[in-house]
Simulated assay, not measured.
Amino acid sequence: MSEQTPGSEPAISAAIITHEGKVLMVRRRVKEGSLSWQFPAGEVESGESASEAASREAREETGLNVSADKVLGERVHPNTGRTMIYVACAVESGSASVVDDEELDAIAWVSLAEIPEYVPYGLFGPVQEHLDSTLSK
Score class of each variant (00 low, 15 high):
residue 25 M to V: 03
residue 79 N to G: 10
residue 2 S to A: 04
residue 25 M to W: 01
residue 92 E to D: 15
residue 12 I to H: 01
residue 85 I to R: 05
residue 37 W to I: 06
residue 70 K to P: 01
residue 6 P to Y: 05
residue 121 Y to D: 15
residue 136 S to V: 05
residue 37 W to G: 12
residue 63 G to L: 08
residue 129 E to T: 04
residue 101 D to W: 03
residue 111 S to R: 15
residue 62 T to F: 06
residue 95 S to L: 07
residue 4 Q to I: 15
residue 89 C to R: 06
residue 92 E to G: 03
residue 88 A to K: 10
residue 54 A to K: 03
residue 5 T to L: 14
residue 19 H to T: 05
residue 108 A to F: 02
residue 90 A to H: 14
residue 76 V to D: 14
residue 50 A to P: 06
residue 109 W to Q: 14
residue 116 P to V: 08
residue 88 A to W: 02
residue 26 V to M: 00
residue 79 N to S: 14
residue 46 S to G: 04
residue 11 A to Y: 03
residue 108 A to M: 07
residue 27 R to Y: 01
residue 14 A to R: 04
residue 5 T to I: 12
residue 79 N to C: 00
residue 58 A to Y: 07
residue 12 I to Y: 01
residue 88 A to M: 07
residue 101 D to E: 12
residue 108 A to N: 14
residue 112 L to C: 11
residue 96 A to P: 10
residue 109 W to K: 14
residue 133 S to L: 00
residue 2 S to P: 04
residue 71 V to P: 09
residue 117 E to M: 01
residue 119 V to P: 00
residue 59 R to S: 09
residue 69 D to R: 11
residue 49 S to D: 12
residue 136 S to K: 13
residue 126 P to I: 06
residue 85 I to W: 02
residue 61 E to L: 15
residue 52 E to A: 12
residue 14 A to I: 04
residue 19 H to I: 00
residue 45 E to Q: 13
residue 137 K to A: 04
residue 51 S to E: 15
residue 16 I to H: 02
residue 118 Y to A: 13
residue 4 Q to R: 14
residue 46 S to P: 04
residue 46 S to C: 02
residue 119 V to H: 00
residue 45 E to M: 12
residue 115 I to C: 03
residue 108 A to G: 12
residue 3 E to V: 13
residue 7 G to D: 09
residue 40 P to M: 12
residue 106 A to K: 13
residue 2 S to V: 05
residue 115 I to A: 09
residue 4 Q to C: 06
residue 6 P to A: 11
residue 99 V to C: 07
residue 98 V to E: 10
residue 56 R to D: 05
residue 49 S to F: 05
residue 112 L to W: 14
residue 110 V to F: 03
residue 78 P to G: 12
residue 42 G to Y: 03
residue 31 K to Y: 00
residue 118 Y to H: 15
residue 88 A to I: 03
residue 19 H to F: 06
residue 129 E to Y: 00
residue 3 E to Q: 07
residue 115 I to K: 06
residue 13 S to Y: 01
residue 54 A to D: 05
residue 62 T to D: 10
residue 55 S to N: 05
residue 103 E to P: 02
residue 68 A to H: 00
residue 1 M to G: 15
residue 74 E to A: 13
residue 112 L to S: 13
residue 99 V to P: 09
residue 103 E to T: 12
residue 76 V to E: 14
residue 69 D to T: 08
residue 136 S to Y: 00
residue 43 E to T: 02
residue 72 L to I: 10
residue 110 V to P: 13
residue 47 G to S: 03
residue 97 S to M: 08
residue 119 V to D: 09
residue 55 S to E: 11
residue 65 N to C: 07
residue 35 L to A: 01
residue 120 P to K: 07
residue 114 E to D: 15
residue 77 H to C: 04
residue 91 V to A: 08
residue 82 R to M: 14
residue 5 T to Q: 11
residue 39 F to L: 13
residue 128 Q to K: 12
residue 90 A to N: 15
residue 40 P to K: 11
residue 58 A to F: 02
residue 44 V to I: 15
residue 135 L to G: 05
residue 119 V to A: 06
residue 63 G to W: 01
residue 38 Q to E: 06
residue 56 R to C: 05
residue 129 E to A: 08
residue 27 R to A: 11
residue 89 C to L: 09
residue 1 M to A: 11
residue 86 Y to M: 03
residue 95 S to R: 15
residue 89 C to H: 08
residue 137 K to F: 01
residue 21 G to N: 08
residue 76 V to F: 03
residue 7 G to N: 09
